[in-house]
Nucleic acid binder design. Structure first.
Lengths: 234, 234
DNA sequence: CACCCACCTTCTGTATACAGAATTGGTGTG
DNA sequence: CACACCAATTCTGTATACAGAAGGTGGGTG
């Protein structure tokens, strides 16, 4: 293992985390010198980090005004979900065809258990999120397609950003767990079409929930401490 | 327009072209100093270009042995097509729902014309490839999804590499044109499901054709002039 | 008072220098 | 003869210096 992480990797991960966690709000200008002094590294690793962030779609070159953090509007969330529907349906289908049944039967039992917990316990959310992440990993491994895995990994970065934007309410969480359970059951039963359809259902409901929450007058994504102010700043 | 292209962009495009055109064969080691002297620019733009190529999946870091051009095996081609099926089916479906009918009716007429040409004229291939590229662009614009467009653009880079590997025979070309015609017709008729299914059919046949050609003892991707020798070299 | 021009500041893009690490080749020993 | 160790070379990763360009601001003029 590389115990010595490169400075460019550290800069990339930190900037990526700050963008995903809404500490760097959309529109923030990321100057190279500013970030290099703030992160304590030279401009060269910062440049590399910013290039990777631009490839990820987290920052974009705003017509010579430097690099700014990408906006995440409702429209762009819908765009992300359109790609996600395509990729995750395919992933679920292929996982059902190729996956190790035992792995997904184990996950099925765990989703059952978490389902019980979610009815009573609120802090079970963290266990649930961890379980979903493990399901994603299991699907990736079952599919065995590096291109699909890379595309999904890139997409999940944006989805974490969406999740931080809109916190799930307990009712939606329980429904999502039930939807996930069906997906896992379908993969474990090697029912490719059911896995694909269940994935479609889950993503449809997830997007609907986000759109519903966004339509509320709730002031979302506030109470964050912006490092770089949104429009500009000294 | 930026008449003055950056050196890093030029380095990226040239290296990308050389990889896609099989001038840089899989396994070629891309040393920074070697490429900087060859391309006539400093190491800094070369680094940035190599980072972008690694993000594209065209080169990969071979465990500290430097960056090497990614291999393109039959298995990886199948992986690429699994992603392609997911994304292009979604793109065709959304284009049928949202596209401007007039645009695709015009493309439909052009595909009709090219279909006639392909029966008699071999150099019509270039016109056909150009027409396919315009169809891709039209679909991208009709969908209006930047995330989907970016994912498809990345994928198409790999597909050009595949195309250079296996030259289409006239029979396959005519069949592909017919398949494309059906896709265009479905989009023009706003038949989303037919567009999706026709895309699936086309991609299935395209992959089958590639696999068939690869199984032949034909020495493919030869007669290229390697700039960097595959295993190593001075 | 408004608009334009010029200068200054600051930023990006590129080149180069330097340090640390790894690999390869050679040599010595078992 | 084979294996292991050491040294030298080369490569990557990082920092910094320099040039060109772009934008902002202040002053001057109409």
């Amino acid at each position: 293992m590389a115990v010595t992480q490169r400075a460019s990797d550290r800069a990339y991960q930190r900037l990526r985390d700050e963008i995903v966690e809404w500490e760097l709000q959309p529109g923030s200008v990321l100057g190279e010198v500013e970030q290099s002094t703030r992160l304590g590294v030279s401009r060269t690793p910062v440049r590399e980090a910013l290039a990777r962030l631009m490839a990820d779609g987290l920052v974009s070159s705003q017509s010579g005004r430097g690099l700014v953090v990408t906006d995440l509007s409702i429209e762009s969330i819908q765009e992300i979900f359109e790609v996600r529907q395509a990729l995750e349906e395919q992933a679920a289908r292929l996982a059902a065809l190729r996956g190790d049944t035992a792995v997904f039967e184990q996950l099925e039992r765990e989703f059952d258990a978490v389902n019980e917990l979610l009815d009573r316990d609120d802090p079970a959310r963290h266990a649930y999120y961890g379980l979903v992440a493990r399901l994603d990993t299991a699907i990736d491994e079952a599919v065995g397609n590096s291109y699909l895995a890379a595309a999904l990994a890139n997409l999940r970065t944006h989805l974490v950003r969406v999740r931080r934007l809109a916190v799930d309410d307990p009712a939606r969480l329980a429904a999502a767990a039930a939807e996930h359970l069906l997906i896992v059951q379908a993969i474990a039963a090697r029912d490719a079409e059911l896995a694909a359809h269940a994935t479609q259902v889950h993503l449809h409901q997830a997007l609907r929930n986000i759109q519903k929450m966004a339509s509320l007058p709730t002031n979302l994504h506030t109470a964050v401490s912006p490092i770089g102010p949104a429009p500009k700043g000294s």
